[in-house]
Amino acid sequence: PDSPLARWTKSLHFLLGDQDGAHLFRTFLEREKCVDTLDFWFACNGFRQMDLNDTKTLRVAKAIFKRYIENNSIVAKQLKPATKTYIRDSIKKQQIDSAMFDQAQTEIQSTMEENAYQMFLTSDIYLEYV
């Protein structure tokens, strides 16, 4: 069977599913000043697991919106205007849904797969680790 390290090169999904892989990728993104994209990606996964009947869930949705989408952060810049509007409206109407960040997460993931992930696989951080 493939080692965890070999799987990192197969897909972003494998890399982020491995503790060491996610940690190393995070270090790389910190250096590239775009670690927010990864934190947002994990926040979307965490949000999807939350209980919609828990009052904390609305607060977390608001926190994600405020931290990553409302401002001019790197995440906000990579999202389509319609995606941001949809999330803004959902929060305004307090219509919280487990899938409300799915589209935004997909957009961020695609950008990561095309750019940061490819750069990571040729970075010195990765090569030194290997």
């Binding site: 503790q19 934190d39 926040a43 979307c44 965490g46 926190a63």
Partner: peptide, 20 residues
């Protein structure tokens, strides 16, 4: 009560991969 930042941090941490 947790602050929004704390809640967000917990949400992110909960989704991170655990030890192999």
């Amino acid at each position: 009560m947790d602050s929004e930042d704390d809640l967000l941090q917990k949400c992110i941490t909960s989704a991170m991969p655990k030890q192999r």
